[in-house]
Design a protein around this nucleic acid. Structure first.
Length: 600
DNA sequence: CTAGGGTTAG
């Protein structure tokens, strides 16, 4: 009789145990290295053809954002069944690859596998965000042909996708909704949400009142509609009537009051809410920050961290964006500190938000160091940095970065070109700007939009090429707005082009009759050319226009708070000193041959 | 034996 000696389990045994334990809930595995081990074992054990294993594997890879691995696992199956195809479509949708989701759908059809009631809700999700009515209609036709509307998930998904396709879409959604035999609470909520998105609040409310049963989501949807539309009294009335409120209801109210600029009410609700979460803290902190209320925002940020909250990606991005908007460098730095403390690495989204925050808050060197330290950059990173350099007057550096971006294989988009044209304006590169403008569509298939026309007309005008600027305004395919006419008027002022300015003023008066600034611009031109009678005429016209609209401001945060600067602002306590300095500087740069008002 | 929908911050 043989006695077996006790043996130590070899290393693979533990992996094996992990494998067996993992296989049943493999789709929930979010640890990439474990997942890859399990995948290797699946492959070795020839289990990758098992129709119950591969969908779980695909789902797990999709949750870890490893689509190449998911595709590989999928491709190893010889004859995928409908469930695996569905899983693959969903994986692509969850990873924002709608085109690939459709490709799988077409592959499935050409392989002779028929779609089922699960296929269409996934496919319809792939359409959301595309705003493509005819695509949704095409899917709807398929659904009608195969008769999958008996499964309530299918018409519910149709209502959702249709209502994301503008006005025509909402009409189609209403049709689907109205012919449904058994509507459940999700059908109602989706339809109400669709009407809210289309700004058809009265219809949404009517439906809400007709609902047989209303759970929390229905109330929150209609509440959100009122809050977004600024109908805060209606929102508040409903909020008080609700049988119960959850953290979403409270957050919706916070957003409504914060967006309306009523931070007192926002704060009152925030202090009263029984349960707070990351979202509610984010809303109020970003709200204060957007309005430049540095102390309130920073104090609450500290309180949030003291209460044990670690800001997530969404919180960080919202708060940084708010800091960028109003120049709160100090809070922006504070958020950056928490990022460094709490994370070993941060996402591209956060790094992009930091670049934007630092450059808009005046700290170009910090923005550059984030940009240069990034492991991976995306188009947004390049765009933010190009724009940042341009804004800080480094026109040629911005253009150098633009060529580098192209060398690294990034295709510029419309945002890139706004930055590039802006760089030309700040650097005074008129001919280069025109060149870039013409390559946009020809070489990069980026058709110029009104912002680009605004930039190029501003550039031509500042360069003294008024006739060309006017010709472009007359021939461009978009209707000129106040920014375009305003740029022209500014150029006329710069070169004292009286007659052109008179023409421009008439256009501006039609678009914004209340803006006295336009008259004063023409009045200045008359004054500069010694036409005092016309100056008096302009003053008279100005008197009858009423209020001047608030002018644009630059903000900078110093040790003693945020300082605001506007054109001709004499309210700042140090304005005498400031203007003295500016005059001195203008004198100096004129002496060295610079034309100070043309390019900035 | 697997799976899917509606609301709040970004």
């Amino acid at each position: 009789m043989q006695v077996s000696a006790p043996i130590r389990a070899p290393a693979w045994v533990s992996t094996r145990r992990l494998f067996e334990q993992k296989l049943s809930d493999l789709h929930k595995c979010n640890n990439l290295s474990q997942l890859k081990q399990v995948y290797a074992l699946i492959y070795k054990s020839n289990l990758h053809q098992d129709p119950f294993v591969t969908p779980k594997l695909v789902t797990a890879f999709s949750l870890c954002r490893q689509m190449p691995c998911a595709v590989k696992a999928f491709n190893q199956v010889h004859e995928p069944n409908v469930h695996l195809y569905n899983t693959m479509i969903r994986a692509h949708v969850h990873n924002s690859q709608p085109a690939q989701a459709f490709a799988i759908f077409f592959l499935m059809q050409s392989s002779g596998v028929f779609p089922d009631n699960f296929t269409y809700p996934f496919l319809l999700k792939a359409c959301s965000g595309q705003n493509d009515f005819s695509l949704v209609k095409m899917i709807h036709t398929h659904i009608q042909k195969y008769g999958f509307c008996s499964d309530i998930y299918v018409p519910n998904a149709l209502i959702d996708s249709y209502s994301r396709c503008g006005l025509v879409g909402v009409g189609a959604a209403k049709k689907v909704f109205s012919v449904m035999d058994d509507k459940d609470v999700v059908s109602w909520n989706t339809m109400i949400g669709g009407l809210v998105k289309a700004n058809r609040l009265n219809e949404a409310r009517q439906l809400f009142d007709e609902m047989p049963e209303r759970d929390m989501v229905s109330w929150n949807t209609i509440l959100d509609g009122y809050a977004k539309a600024g109908q805060l009294n209606d929102a508040f009335e409903l909020f008080e009537k609700m049988p119960e409120r959850n953290v979403v209801s409270w957050s919706t109210m916070l957003t409504g009051y914060s967006k309306a600029g009523d931070m007192e009410m926002t704060r009152m609700l925030f202090d009263k809410m029984p349960v707070k979460n990351m979202v509610s803290w984010t809303i109020i902190i970003a709200g204060y920050a957007e309005k430049g209320l540095a102390k309130e925002a920073t104090d609450l940020y500290e309180q949030m961290e003291e209460a044990g909250y670690r800001p997530d990606d969404g919180a960080i991005i919202s708060i940084l964006a708010a800091c960028a908007e109003s120049g709160l460098l100090w809070l922006g730095k504070r958020v950056h500190q928490s990022i460094n403390k709490n994370r070993h690495q941060c996402s591209i989204l956060i790094e992009n938000a930091l670049i934007d925050m630092y450059s808009k808050c005046g700290s170009l060197s910090k923005a550059l160091s984030i940009f240069n330290g990034m492991g991976k950059k995306d188009l947004v990173s390049w765009n933010a940095m190009i724009h940042g350099l341009a804004m800080h007057g480094h026109g040629s550096k911005a253009l150098q970065l633009f060529s580098k971006m192209k060398q690294e294989g990034f295709a510029p988009d419309k945002v890139t070109f706004v930055g590039v044209l802006c760089a030309c304006t700040h650097g005074g590169f008129v001919d280069e700007g025109i060149q870039y403008f013409y390559t946009m569509e020809r070489d990069y298939r980026v058709p110029p939009e009104i912002e680009h026309y605004g930039c190029i007309i501003d550039l031509l005008g500042r360069g003294g090429r008024l006739q060309e600027a006017f010709r472009l305004v007359r021939t461009m395919p978009v209707e000129p707005n106040v920014i375009i006419w305003g740029a022209l008027l500014g150029a006329c002022r710069l070169y004292n082009a009286v007659e052109l300015a008179q023409e421009v003023l008439e256009h501006l008066v039609k678009l914004e009759p209340q803006n006295a600034g336009n008259y004063s611009m023409l009045s200045n031109i008359y004054a500069a050319t010694g036409n005092w009678d016309s100056v008096a005429d302009m003053r008279l016209r100005m008197k009858n226009t009423g209020n001047e609209k608030p002018s644009g401001a630059s903000l900078i945060e110093l040790e003693d708070g945020v300082h605001e600067f506007t054109v001709k602002n004499t309210l700042h306590p140090a304005s005498d000193k400031i203007y003295h300095m500016v005059d001195g500087l203008s004198h100096h740069i004129k002496k060295v041959g610079y034309f100070p008002d043309a390019f900035y």
